[in-house]
């Protein structure tokens, strides 16, 4: 009875349109699954047995990507209850941690996986360096990786402004004061004032949308954190994975 039902479903047009081949337990289907699935085709069909060794990659790059997925997932949940308004944001975070069902867990996961991602990305960079995996023909992928590293740190930085607590305010105050001290384009930096930059037209003013960290800064960082930087990091990841596939895995021959 159940077997007949399963067979009916499997033979139906709907099932056939989604799964183009049988369960991947034969060589043919194990190849087809990699070709036909958009997510799985990031992988090659076959891989050298030695490249599976944990000792070589320690799964650092893959886990960084997994952290990004987890952060996107938990971040979307948090966005449902969060308003980027200086009067509301702090209360929203309190609501999320204490009132929303599983809200505290979502925020904790978001926070700790963000910290884990920073650590994993650094560790991944270290591993890639130590195994010489950046050498020709993989130079470009190392550069893309550095961009991803920078984007990861910027995501962390824009992220901890959002709860609008003391850490948020002062970390952003300090961080954007550094921008103010940029040579040439910040008014407190070398040659900034000589080039006509003032507190209300320099790079810091653009970054926080005002002369003090306030509502505009919160909104700008919110947009950067939730839209601009994730888009950049997604594009970077696409290129990063694509190049691994094209240039080949550097693992032991």
């Amino acid at each position: 009875m159940i077997d007949r039902l399963v067979k009916y479903v499997r033979d139906s047009q709907v099932w056939q349109s989604i799964f183009r081949h049988g369960y991947p337990d034969t060589d043919r289907n194990q190849s087809l699954v990699m070709f036909s699935s958009v997510l799985l085709h990031l992988h090659p069909v076959k891989i050298r047995r030695s490249a599976l060794k944990f000792r070589y990659t320690m799964c650092l790059g893959g886990l960084s990507a997994f952290m990004f997925l987890l952060l996107t997932f938990t971040g979307i949940f948090l966005m449902f209850y969060y308003v980027p308004d200086t009067r509301a944001a702090y209360g929203n975070i309190k609501d999320i941690t204490s009132n929303v069902f599983m809200g505290g867990l979502m925020r904790d996961l978001h926070k700790w996986s963000a910290e884990a991602m920073v650590f994993l990305v650094w560790a991944h960079m270290f591993r890639v360096f130590m195994t010489g995996a950046y050498k020709a023909p993989r130079e470009l992928n190392w550069v893309v990786g550095c961009i991803l590293l920078t984007a990861t740190l910027l995501l962390s930085w824009t992220g901890y402004l959002l709860p609008w607590d003391q850490l948020a305010l002062w970390a952003i105050t300090v961080g954007t004061k550094m921008a103010e001290a940029t040579p040439f384009i910040g008014y407190a930096g070398p040659w900034g004032q000589q080039l006509g930059f003032r507190v209300d037209n320099d790079i810091r003013f653009l970054l926080i949308g005002g002369t003090v960290v306030g509502q505009n800064a919160l909104l700008r960082f919110y947009v950067l954190h939730c839209v601009a930087l994730p888009v950049i990091i997604t594009l970077g990841m696409v290129v990063h994975f694509w190049r691994i596939r094209k240039d080949g895995f550097s693992g032991p021959l």
Binding site: N201, L206, V212, G214
Partner: peptide, 9 residues
């Protein structure tokens, strides 16, 4: 991107 109206303390 340059704000034209500011509401500051």
């Amino acid at each position: 991107y340059v704000p034209t109206v500011l509401y500051e303390p």
